[in-house]
Amino acid sequence: MAGTSQKKLNLKLKVWRQKSNKDQGSFVEINAEGVSEDASFLEMLDQVNESLIKKGDDPIAFDHDCREGICGSCGFMINGNAHGPQKGTTVCQLHMRAFKDGDSIVLEPWRATAFPVIKDLMVNRSAFDRIISAGGFISVDTGNAPDANGLPVPKPDADEAFANATCIGCGACVASCKNASAMLFTSAKVSHLALLPQGQVEKTERVLRMVAQMDSEGFGSCTSTGACSAACPKEIKLTSIARMNRELLAATLNKKEAVEGDGV
């Protein structure tokens, strides 16, 4: 219970330290002492950093922002698990009561060719933005929209679209995959838009372009092991990948070309 626990933990951290993407990294042992069980994992790192700063050392760099599991900034491997041991949880939502006094904890950045390490636990995930800009949207200029209730959407479709749209783009799926595949991320966006009537017009082009962009970023192939979905803090389902494969097949077979210059 928050605020009730007086228990303090002493932990041994093995943290990946890497100055920049040009440097070699290595694991460094750092002790975390007197950590409250009520602290979040990132607050534990704040505490460690505070003591590193006092000693004149460089604090551990990690991405973080909202600290409530929705912005998708944080994320690294904790003892080999993306975002740590709890299901459906981001690192910032993980609290120290999940650990025991004396535990050793290994912290390592996401490992993927498409996510180069920037510093320590920070990686560059801008490949995800490029996948979205390759068609992960519905082309509707501001001011063109009909009345919102003019187009009813069956509740199950809306709910399923929502479930896919909750992806926070943290990259845990890629980091957990032995092939560093971005299929779960990409398929969540394809599914979100393909499940809605508004998304139908561009569905063929969308899936073709997004998959092509994904491939060109250097992500690996999907071999359906399901590690991505198991690690996903938003618990996006493997069926999204199946849906994307179906969309991709249909798009490949159905692709038609628009007439260039015809009133465009």
Partner: peptide, 22 residues
């Protein structure tokens, strides 16, 4: 009111009733 129209057109999955309306 235009904001809601715009967002729905973009595919924002707002909560819906069983009849499909918002």
């Amino acid at each position: 009111t235009s904001i809601i129209d715009q967002c729905v057109a973009q595919g924002v999955p707002f909560a819906r009733e069983y009849g499909g309306l918002l």
